[in-house]
Computed example of a mutant assay.
Amino acid sequence: MQQWLAAPHPSPRQVSVLILVPTRELASQVSRTLDQLARTLPGNVKILPLFGGVSINPQMMDLRGGADIVVATPGRLLDLCTRNALQLFSVKTLVLDEADRLLDLGFAEEISRIITLLPNPRQTLLFSATFPTEVQSLAEQQLREPQRIMLAATDSDRPAIVQRAIHVDETQRGDLLLTLIRDEGWTQVLVFVATHRMADQLAKLLNQANIPAAPFHGELSQGRRSQALAAFKEGSLQVLLATDVAARGIDIVQLPTVINYNLPRSAVDYQHRIGRTGRAGASGLAISFVTPISEAHFRLIEKRQQQRLVREQIAGFEVQPAAILTTNTGAGGIKGKRKSKKDKLREAGKSD
């Protein structure tokens, strides 16, 4: 905003700042924050959020006369550039918000295409709460002699999140979710699942049990996603069943409970998921359902998080010890169950 105030303002407007984000909801959220900051400034800053899932025509109309700051998802931005509705030759500042997500394989090709449309020199800023090694190497390819600024959390800043791990059989998770919601009296629960199909199925299960629930994933129209999120925030929707699209950037004030129905793919995603609760000084609860099959994966997440959680057992949902043995995924199977080469030779009478 300071740079915009100090810079000349050509007519028609030219985009001086481009902010790229991974999700539609984050584009709206960042745009609202910038609008709030701009209200007290002299002059009129034109800030446009651009994202998919909605008709492109109104966005093309909004771009007539240019814009000062654009907040966009990569796919929709490229669509608008292809249609010559948006020019990026004047961009002086590029911001990658949730940079680790934007630089992973899901967005890397689109980001590369966008960068070819931008001028040099420019300032590039990467923002992220987590910065894995593989993403750091990608960032180094995009930046020249970057300055790294680390804002370490103090003890007072650290979220007060109680983490729990519940051992449960794969087929019992749905019933366990129902039981916990009822017994614990939770009024607002964000549940993370692996696929949009599972989100749809669980939403149906919960609604049949008179628990207001809705799915939230990338296959839904933007209208349905916005409606579900708004209902969840205002409290008329008790449970939101989300894929990882919701893990980045969504700010739900005083969200009390997050559940990992399916474990995330990585420790980084785990951190972003549970970070939806315990925000702005509030306390929160994060529960992970750990099945015999996913036990080894959760141990890896714990190792990366430098912690070890007690595995709880809920009455009526106890995991049978035999299930843990039969789902051992280590190379070579379970020791003692497979015949050795020497045993086979003995049986064939070829060895003593």
Score class of each variant (00 low, 15 high):
T23K: 05
L151G: 08
D157Q: 14
D200R: 05
F232R: 02
A203C: 01
L206Q: 01
H196P: 04
L240W: 00
I161D: 09
V239P: 03
L325G: 00
L96Y: 01
D62R: 13
R276Q: 06
D100I: 09
Q123D: 11
Q271W: 14
T243C: 07
Q141M: 12
T179P: 00
G278C: 09
K335Y: 13
Q238V: 04
E145K: 14
Q208K: 10
N57T: 05
R248V: 05
G185P: 00
R13E: 09
L263Y: 00
L102W: 06
V45M: 10
E184R: 09
L80W: 02
H196C: 15
G43A: 09
V135R: 10
V310E: 14
V54T: 14
P22I: 12
L178A: 02
Q320T: 09
P22D: 09
D155Q: 15
R299T: 03
D104E: 13
L285W: 00
P58A: 09
S288C: 07
L143I: 04
L190Y: 00
F216W: 06
S16K: 14
A85I: 07
T171K: 15
G281C: 09
R83W: 01
Q307G: 04
P74C: 07
M198E: 13
A108C: 08
D62K: 09
G174A: 11
R224Y: 01
L229N: 07
V162T: 14
V191K: 00
F232S: 03
D175V: 01
T82N: 15
S137V: 13
K46P: 03
F289W: 03
A322H: 08
Q201I: 06
E25K: 07
I161T: 05
G332I: 04
L180S: 01
L190S: 01
Q14I: 03
E25Y: 10
V45N: 05
Q123V: 10
G66K: 04
G218N: 00
F51K: 05
L88N: 10
Q222W: 00
P8C: 08
A108R: 15
Q136Y: 11
P49K: 12
I149P: 09
E140S: 14
I115Q: 12
G330E: 15
L117K: 14
L126W: 10
P74H: 06
V70S: 02
I114L: 13
R144N: 13
L190H: 00
G43T: 07
N260R: 05
M1I: 10
L143H: 01
P58W: 05
Q29L: 11
A282E: 12
I334F: 14
I314C: 08
R279I: 04
L117H: 13
I301M: 08
E109V: 14
R224Q: 12
A209L: 02
T154C: 07
G185C: 05
L240S: 02
K339F: 06
